[in-house]
């Protein structure tokens, strides 16, 4: 009976943590069937440690990335490329957006281009006043990329990770200016 109580209390205590983890919706699996290319990068903490051995301490850029990777629990990237525009709908990524809501998640960058139809968003997850994860959502007419970074990371360090581990390169001018969290082009 005591064991049952402990299990119950632990379950209740851990439930909010579980709810904060970004879950990729099943609708994305359906998108895979329509996509002309699907890229899936899955790196848990062990694989990240293993992969970071390929980064040199002597090379300045590598050393920076290695430092950032040290605080991470996982990097997950899912990218879909389609033959033509309109193959995926906003409703396909709606379950993902639903998870990226306050109080756990807040959007820190939003760049929307009316000209090209590109839309980039960066969300941070806060746990006890500290950043516990990042999510990047990039939607283009013929491409969809979702990046989930679990662990302690400073948004400024994101650009260090760009171009590594399947994470798209982060452009400097995509950063918000004067505290603005969104930008329309």
């Amino acid at each position: 009976m005591t064991a049952l109580k402990i299990a119950l209390i632990t379950g209740i205590a851990l439930a909010p943590l579980g709810a904060q983890e970004l879950k990729l919706p099943a609708s994305l699996d359906r998108l895979a069937a329509k996509a002309s290319e699907v890229v899936d990068v899955t790196m848990d903490a062990n694989l990240l440690q293993l992969a970071s051995r390929f980064l040199s301490d002597k090379n300045k850029d590598d050393a920076q990335v290695k430092k950032v990777v040290g605080g991470l629990k996982g990097i997950y990237v899912k990218s879909f490329e389609f033959e033509k525009a309109g193959e995926y709908q906003e409703s396909d990524i709606e379950p993902l957006r639903t998870q990226l809501h306050a109080p756990a998640w807040s959007r820190i960058v939003g760049v929307r281009s009316r000209k090209s139809g590109d839309n980039s968003e960066v969300y941070v997850k806060t746990e006890g006043g500290k950043i516990g994860g990042l999510a990047i959502l990039v939607t283009e007419p013929k491409e969809l990329t979702i990046v989930s970074i679990e662990g302690s990371i400073d948004p400024d360090q994101l650009k260090e990770l760009g171009g590594h581990f399947g994470i798209p390169k982060i452009e400097q001018d995509s950063q918000p200016k004067n505290g603005k969290s969104g930008k329309d082009e």
Binding site: V38, V39, D40, V41, T42, L50
Partner: peptide, 24 residues
Amino acid sequence: WKPFVQVRSWKHGDEQTVIVYMAA
């Protein structure tokens, strides 16, 4: 063995799958 990169491509009419595994 842990798969860390999986690419499935249907470009040029044929399906191609590349899976990269890593282990210590």
